[in-house]
Amino acid sequence: MKQLISTLFLFLLSGCQIDPYTHAPTWTGTDWYDAGIQDAISGYAVKDNETLADNFNDPDVDRTKYLKGFAEGQRKICQQDFVYARGLAGKTFPQSCDTVENVDQLHNAWQKGANEGSASIRLN
């Protein structure tokens, strides 16, 4: 009986061994397109290659993909309704929209939202 329990205990212990490399992440490189989208949506201006390399710890910056992603992010964020809502919420005008064609209209929409937002704060 002692021998059976000892054997079962050994089997139980050997089954609990964890391979430390089983769950190690694999490095696939930076998705520069996604990085560009995220920067634009976050309201950042276009970053230079040195800053991108430092931020992502990846010296192989694909500038073309980054700029394509940034343009896609601008398309999503640089809309009058969106910048109006940012102004209403008291957020700053996104720098990523400074280079689009209709920047004056966007800035006016943002300013209108900022004015309405600050007026509603005073009323409360």
Rank of each mutant, 00 (worst) to 15 (best):
K65H: 08
V100Y: 00
D39C: 01
T26F: 08
A85M: 11
D58V: 01
Y84M: 07
D104M: 09
D62G: 02
K65V: 01
E101H: 08
T99Q: 12
N102A: 05
G113Q: 02
K112L: 12
Q79K: 15
P25Q: 05
A35G: 02
D104Y: 07
T92G: 09
A24H: 08
I37W: 08
Q17K: 09
N57D: 15
G87P: 09
G15T: 11
H23N: 12
P25T: 04
I41R: 14
D19V: 07
N57F: 05
K91P: 05
Q105D: 15
W110N: 03
V61D: 01
T64D: 13
F56E: 05
D62V: 07
R63V: 11
F70L: 07
N102G: 10
T26Y: 05
W110C: 05
D98N: 15
E50C: 01
D19P: 06
F82R: 14
D31I: 00
R75Y: 12
A114E: 09
P59N: 01
C97P: 07
G73V: 03
D48Q: 06
K112E: 14
Q17A: 12
F56Q: 07
D58N: 13
L67Q: 10
D58S: 14
R75H: 10
N55D: 13
A89P: 05
Q111W: 07
K47G: 00
V103T: 14
K91N: 12
I18L: 15
G73T: 04
F93V: 07
R63S: 10
R86F: 08
R86N: 10
L52N: 03
